[in-house]
């Protein structure tokens, strides 16, 4: 009987298996192939396209292979859409997150019909933006029930212009985004151990102190994540900007510009450039929020999520 040898007697297969490499990795293969084929490849292809500007763009804006980017930053019609998108997406996401907190806190209690209320709140998520748009056009239009009510109640003298402008798109973003933010924040809240609140109570903290010193810090990472997700939703707003907005004016968002280049001008190179810039800007905002979150608080939420 000898002392333990230092060299492994296991076969190569075993040694690979130990590092997690074996035939079961084949399970991953179909999903990976599809994502590579339908996401990674086209995406790289699209990036390549952005450096092959059409003759028209090159002639008009110059800049050689970078002409698409020169056009993006120099053409005010296109570049202004960045600001327009931000003016819609940032306030909408902020409002959705901030309004969700008190609602989620109130709905945290058990009461009759809780499931019904949450189910109704889920509705707009399922309906999607196109349907919300049709509803808004009818309900909040000049002759819709909303204006009619406001007129008859004597709150306004003439119908408010609530659709086909910035307000209409904002309404649409809140209607679809708020339930989403609310559900996420509810699930974060339920991840906070209620005994923490009870503990703070036994230590003599009032409700504001408990919220400010216990709940809010624990919720902060969740708020950041929720903000990111609602922002992502609002940022890529497309149908509502066209249907209830002013597509060539104050709601000329980036996705509309990208689609205009793609569908109407058939300039796939420029369309890819705008689409890519959308991704870059959105991920930039996401990264900023994540950075803020990591500076803010480094503990765990006390629960999964």
């Amino acid at each position: 009987m000898t002392a333990v040898g230092s060299r492994s007697t296991a076969s190569l297969r075993h040694r690979l298996a130990e590092r997690g490499v074996d035939v079961s990795l084949l399970f991953l293969l179909p999903a990976l192939l599809l994502i590579v084929g339908l996401f990674v490849y086209p995406f790289s292809y699209g990036i390549g396209l952005t450096f092959q500007p059409s003759a028209l763009v090159q002639e008009r804006w110059g800049g050689g292979v970078l002409a698409n980017y020169v056009a993006f930053f120099s053409d005010p019609f296109v570049f202004d859409s960045v600001g327009i998108t931000m003016r819609l997406a940032l306030p909408a996401a902020l409002f959705n997150v901030l309004a969700s907190v008190p609602v989620a806190l109130v709905l945290r209690r058990k009461f009759r019909g809780k499931r019904l209320v949450t189910s109704i709140l889920v509705l707009p998520i399922t309906l999607g933006t196109v349907l919300t748009a049709q509803g808004l056009l009818i309900f909040a239009g000049r002759q819709g029930w909303l204006n009619r009510f406001l007129l008859e109640a004597g709150i306004v003298d003439e119908p408010l212009r609530l659709v086909n402008n910035y307000t209409g798109v904002m309404f649409s973003l809140i209607i679809t985004g708020f339930p989403f933010a609310f559900l996420l924040i509810s699930s974060y809240l339920s991840g906070i151990d209620p005994s923490l609140d009870a503990a703070a109570r036994t230590l003599g903290a009032g409700w504001w102190q408990r919220f400010r010193r216990v709940t809010l810090p624990l919720l902060a990472p969740g708020l950041a994540t929720t903000f990111i997700l609602t922002f992502v939703l609002a940022f890529s707003v497309f149908p509502s900007a066209r249907l209830v907005g002013d597509a060539m004016g104050e709601t000329r968002v980036m996705s509309l510009m990208a689609f205009r280049a793609f569908g109407e001008q058939n300039d796939y190179q420029m369309a890819s450039t705008i689409a890519l810039m959308m991704g870059v800007i959105e991920l930039g905002v996401v990264a900023l929020v994540l950075l803020w979150r990591s500076l803010l608080y480094k503990g765990s939420t006390g629960g999964k999520g």
């Binding site: 040898g5 492994s8 007697t9 075993h14 040694r15 130990e18």
Partner: peptide, 17 residues
């Protein structure tokens, strides 16, 4: 768990593989 060292024999037959 795969072994990294040694072997297991059942009546002289290797079974750890």
């Amino acid at each position: 768990l795969p072994l990294t060292h040694g072997e297991i024999l059942m009546d002289g037959r290797r079974v750890d593989t």
